[in-house]
Design a protein around this nucleic acid. Sequence first.
DNA 1: ATTTAATTCAAACGACTGTTTGAAACATGC
DNA 2: GCATGTTTCAAACAGTCGTTTGAATTAAAT
Lengths: 219, 219
Amino acid sequence: MKKKDTKTRILDTAERLFAQKGFDAVSLRNIIASAKVNLAAVHYHFGSKQALLHAVVARRLRPINEERLAGLAEARAKAGKRAVKLERVLECLFLPLFRVQANPKVGPTFSRLIGRVLFDRNANLQKFMMSELAEVIPQFSAALDASLPGLAKEETDWRSHFMAGAMAHTLCNADLLAKFTGTQFEPSDYETTVRRLIDFTAAGFRAKASPPTRPRKKK
Amino acid sequence: MKKKDTKTRILDTAERLFAQKGFDAVSLRNIIASAKVNLAAVHYHFGSKQALLHAVVARRLRPINEERLAGLAEARAKAGKRAVKLERVLECLFLPLFRVQANPKVGPTFSRLIGRVLFDRNANLQKFMMSELAEVIPQFSAALDASLPGLAKEETDWRSHFMAGAMAHTLCNADLLAKFTGTQFEPSDYETTVRRLIDFTAAGFRAKASPPTRPRKKK
DNA sequence: ATTTAATTCAAACGACTGTTTGAAACATGC
DNA sequence: GCATGTTTCAAACAGTCGTTTGAATTAAAT
């Protein structure tokens, strides 16, 4: 446990720095200096800086996505022929992701990274994320649809989009909540955060759509 | 109208490139090559790359924030002694921001930029954004509180945070909606987008909070 | 113990970074 | 016309960037 091998030292350090400053703002030399490894080790073990980023993300995201799918499958089995309840679907989606916040070692670091990655427009990274989410998205999209009978697919898609924004922002920028509003944020209490997020988004999903054209004048 | 001066050519080009690739990923030489100006012109007119970014953001964000405050003031005046309705507050917050999407010239470009900026963790930029929003945040925060009688301030803060995430994600990554779900996105129809966003977030704000401790087992 | 493979290392590659400089070119007021 | 202040320009500054190389070291296999 004491001394980690070069590969994981690079991964850990890259994760921390990418999360703190962003992919472009961190150089390989920043990483190897902090990880105390040789510069060429990065290319030996990962091939390129971009591939290192993918490895950093995949290491944490893959177990999370597996947990998500397993949770959803279990909920489906329990529900039998009935559709899984909306709140339950959202919980399967959020909980595995926010659970890492409770781990003081990697939590704050990875939370920021994953939020950052979700919003990054690096083309390679986006393609990589698409492939990482290739299973999760259609599964949860279908579950959401089933839990919202009568809601048009287009509306479900838009509201999923809103939900994704709220989720990523909460994960990534929770510290801004304290900065802007003064309300404190306790990373260890991720269950309360998830509960709040579920309350908000579930109500959003169930909202009655207002008529397409807003009236110009009140009266 | 034909030939713009150096300063605005730099601003326009920087806005486009920052939005496309991000602040760190774009070099001053990328900008001056595309804008067809001299490299030193950037420092002559703006002082530094960071200051250029601030100028790019401020040029569009300042009128938007003025419009937001004016809209809220007008709604307050109309409401008299009553509190402004939640949906109306949200409309004042969203509409000026999303209106730029309808402008095919700057819309897609600035939308991405502002979304990117809201999530960026560049310390200087964050300080700058705080000062740019110094008026808007407390005003709207107070209006939201007033429109949600009985909701604890802590809840309002969290839900404002969720709302901000949904807003930024929608503004910045609307194209992902098509990519992930297949549902098309029409930038010219920003009013429908805003209506959808208001429906979702207003319902989220009004959601009944579920009890703090989730039951471990169903039965 | 010797050969083979995996890993680490210092050094260099060429290209690119934000910023500064001081001389030109331009515009303006007198 | 000349002087003034503003704006443009090419060139250089001092670094940093991701990546590659080939030799030195360590580990594993025979």
